[in-house]
Amino acid sequence: MKPATTVRLGLITAIVLALEILTRIGVIARFVAPPPSEMMVGLWRLLLSGRVHLAITQTLSKIAIACSLAIVVGILMGVAIQRFRGLADAMSPFFTAYYAVPVYAFYPMMIAIFGIGEAPQIVIGFMLAVVAVVVNTINALDRIPRVLRKTAAVYGMRPLEAARRIYLPHAGPYLATGVKLAVSYSFIGVIGAEFIMSRIGIGHEIVFAYNNFENEIMYPLILFVLLVAGAVNGLFYAWEKRLLSRRSRS
C-alpha cells in the first residue's frame, strides 16, 4: 500500500474514533449526532428490516437513468457545440453560471409537464448532470492536438472510425472526468428533488424521519447515502486516475 493511502485510512479512522469518543462522553449532544458505531448498527438493522428497500431501489434506478441520459445527451451536445468555436467560447460564462441556478425551482414546472411520479426527479438529476458532461466533452475535444486530426485525414478515416481509433483514446480521460461529475451530480439532483417533494425514495425517507424526530432512522439513512455516493465516486475517481496515468506512460 502506498504511504499516502495508509495515512489517509489512518486519518479517517482517527476522525471516526474522535466522533465516537466525543459523542460518548457527551461533548456532542446525542440529538445532534449519535456515535458512529450506533449509526452503523442502525443502518445494518434498517437494511435487514427491509423497510427502506423499495426507497433505495427507486432512488438508485432514478439516478442510473438520469446519469446515463446525461452522459449520452451531454456528449452529443458537446460534440455539436465544439464544432463552432465562437459558440463554445460565448457559452463558457453561462456554463459556470449554470451551477448557481437553483434547478429545484423548476420542480413545480416539471410536475406540471411530466406529472407526479418519478419523471420530474429524473429530469432534475439529468439537468444538473448534463452540463458537466457538455463542458468536459468540449474540453476533451479541444485538447486533441492538430497532428492527430491530420493523422486521421492522412489515413483517410471516416469520422466514426477516426473517433473510435484516435479521438476517443486520446480524449478518454477528460471524458471520464465528465462521466464522474455526471454520476455525482445525478446523485445530488435526484436526492435533492426527493427532499423537496416526493412520496418515495431515500431523500423522502430522510425528510420524513427528520420531521418525526426519528434520529435512529435519519442518521443511518444519511450515512447510507454518503457511503454509497462516496463508494461510487471513489470508483470513478480511481478509474479516471488509471486512464490518466496510462496516458502519461505512453
Binding site: 464522474k180 446523485f187 445530488i188 435533492g192 427532499f195 465516486n233 471513489g234
Partner: peptide, 18 residues
C-alpha cells in the same frame, strides 16, 4: 486530495438536517 474530491461530490443536501 481524494478526501476533498469525495467530499466535493457528495450530495451535501443530505447533510441539511445535521
Amino acid at each position: 486530495e481524494p478526501l476533498l474530491v469525495s467530499f466535493y461530490s457528495l450530495p451535501k443536501i443530505t447533510l441539511y438536517p445535521i
